[in-house]
């Protein structure tokens, strides 16, 4: 989270909060009569245009935007009872758990009918973007070389040149990253190549990351050659690095994460939250999403997502993952 908007925004980092808010930004509108508090995993810079266009239509609403990690969001809402109106997160499992445990308010409006069936659960969680997990490669490292298009090809490549790729692969540290954990668990459900790949990455002393942006940065500088399970949307957003990296949607399957928003039950600004939701959803679903390739595997919303959040299940998965990674 390294892009902060400074112009005309008040910005500070709050260390005092127990849930360690990373950055809280106030988008003040002139003549505003109410304030909408959003807690979100999306970087402030990435989300600022959405808020700006929202405020053009609704100048009476101030927006208080807090960027946080998915587990921080969970802690803030479940344990600290922090006052937020909307939670936006890439961690579909945690969002589902929030809704399942009664922290989300059901919402119904003309805009929610735009959301496809697979993009909503209980009329509480609403998807507003689909983002595939990709493999990002350093362009220089793969110069004149065949680009792996599937996990199997990646495995073959790593096996054939272990020396070249040792310590030059990166992936999420699923113990700390909520999104990394979600991608990994869904991978493990989809195909057993995941475990072969994980084991192989373990043998090649994989570098573990907290976030996609760090991985993209390191690939672009050539510190690592391959980053696995990187948010494609983040990589594609880095126009400045387009010359240096190659983004690959694996042809065998690409896990697609739905970025979702929900209105919190405790919200004191339900009306403003509804307006924001309408804005977000109508922007997102105004045009029917183009039918994507067959290799895209959308993570389904629903109680299934609770499974890997189970304490024992998580313990077991992490154990297995750790023994594959740290050999």
């Amino acid at each position: 989270m390294r892009y902060f908007i400074t112009a005309c925004l008040v910005l500070w980092t709050s260390m005092a909060h127990a849930y360690e808010i990373e950055a809280q930004t106030e988008f003040n509108a002139e003549g505003a009569t109410s304030t909408l508090s959003i807690i979100s995993t999306t970087d402030t810079a990435v989300f600022a245009p959405v808020i700006a266009s929202f405020q053009v239509a609704n100048p009476q609403i101030n927006v208080n935007y807090t960027a946080a990690s998915s587990s921080q969001i969970n802690t803030a809402i479940v344990e600290e009872n922090a006052q937020f109106d909307i939670a936006i997160s890439s961690a579909m499992d945690l969002q589902t758990k929030l809704a399942n445990d009664g922290y989300a308010e059901a919402f119904d409006s003309s805009s929610t009918t735009l959301v496809p069936d697979w993009g909503t659960w209980r009329n509480s969680i609403f998807a507003f973007s689909q983002e595939p997990a990709t493999i990002v490669l350093n362009r220089a490292a793969f110069k004149g070389q065949k680009i792996p298009q599937t996990r199997a090809e990646l495995i073959t490549l790593l096996r054939s040149q272990p020396k070249k790729y040792e310590r030059r692969i990166g992936t999420y540290d699923v113990r700390t990253s909520g999104l990394g954990y979600l991608f990994a668990t869904q991978d493990s459900r989809t195909s057993e190549t995941f475990w072969r790949l994980t084991e192989l990455m373990g043998q090649l002393k994989v570098k573990l990351y907290c976030c996609s942006s760090d991985m993209i940065e390191d690939v672009s500088t050539g510190q690592i050659a391959i980053a696995y399970n990187v948010l494609g949307s983040y990589a594609a957003a880095r126009d400045d690095l387009a010359e240096k990296i190659i983004i690959i949607e694996p042809q065998d399957y690409a896990t697609v994460m739905l970025r979702t928003a929900l209105i919190l039950k405790d919200s004191k600004a339900q009306r403003a939250a509804g307006l924001f939701m309408d804005h977000l959803l109508s922007e997102a679903w105004n045009e029917q999403p183009i039918n994507q390739g067959q290799n895209l595997r959308r993570i389904p919303l629903g109680p299934g997502l609770l499974v890997f959040l189970d304490r024992l299940k998580r313990q077991q998965f992490l154990q297995e993952w750790s023994s594959a990674i740290f050999q």
Binding site: R189, P300, G302, P303, G304, L306, V307, F308, D310, L312, K313, Q316
Partner: peptide, 9 residues
């Protein structure tokens, strides 16, 4: 306990 994904799904 290794809860099967399908059990809740």
């Amino acid at each position: 306990a290794d809860i099967p994904y399908a059990a809740l799904a």
